[in-house]
Simulated scan of single mutants.
Amino acid sequence: MNIKILGSGCSNCAKLEKVVREAVDDLGIVVEIEKVQDVAEIISYGVMSTPALVIDEVVKLVGKVPNRARVVEILKQALPQ
């Protein structure tokens, strides 16, 4: 699983990264987490508000920082069946 945190490096972007890392630890899964700060690349996902969460090239969340339980739920839904 490939996870991207899209954002300019703002405090909410850092919070989203922290919550995602905690959720990944909770699930005990191996993922690749990448921070994307390039504006052109962020826009290429159709994202106009950050932070955003992209899992396996699918935008899952835009413009907010969810709690850890919500991120765990999003990750579980994205896991291969």
Rank of each mutant, 00 (worst) to 15 (best):
40 A>K: 15
20 V>L: 05
60 K>L: 06
31 V>F: 08
26 D>P: 00
33 I>Q: 10
16 L>M: 04
59 V>M: 04
38 D>R: 12
52 A>W: 10
12 N>E: 10
56 D>H: 03
62 V>F: 12
80 P>K: 07
10 C>N: 09
68 R>A: 00
55 I>Y: 07
11 S>N: 05
41 E>I: 15
22 E>V: 03
28 G>A: 00
51 P>F: 12
13 C>G: 11
60 K>D: 05
75 L>V: 04
72 V>P: 03
37 Q>K: 15
7 G>F: 05
65 V>C: 08
22 E>N: 10
24 V>Y: 00
55 I>H: 03
20 V>R: 04
17 E>Y: 03
81 Q>H: 01
22 E>A: 14
75 L>Q: 05
5 I>R: 01
78 A>T: 08
33 I>H: 08
5 I>N: 06
29 I>V: 12
73 E>L: 03
76 K>I: 07
37 Q>T: 15
70 R>M: 08
11 S>R: 02
76 K>V: 09
3 I>M: 09
64 K>I: 00
24 V>D: 01
17 E>H: 08
29 I>R: 00
1 M>P: 09
46 G>P: 03
36 V>D: 10
9 G>N: 09
54 V>H: 04
55 I>N: 02
23 A>D: 09
9 G>Q: 11
78 A>F: 07
61 L>S: 12
56 D>K: 04
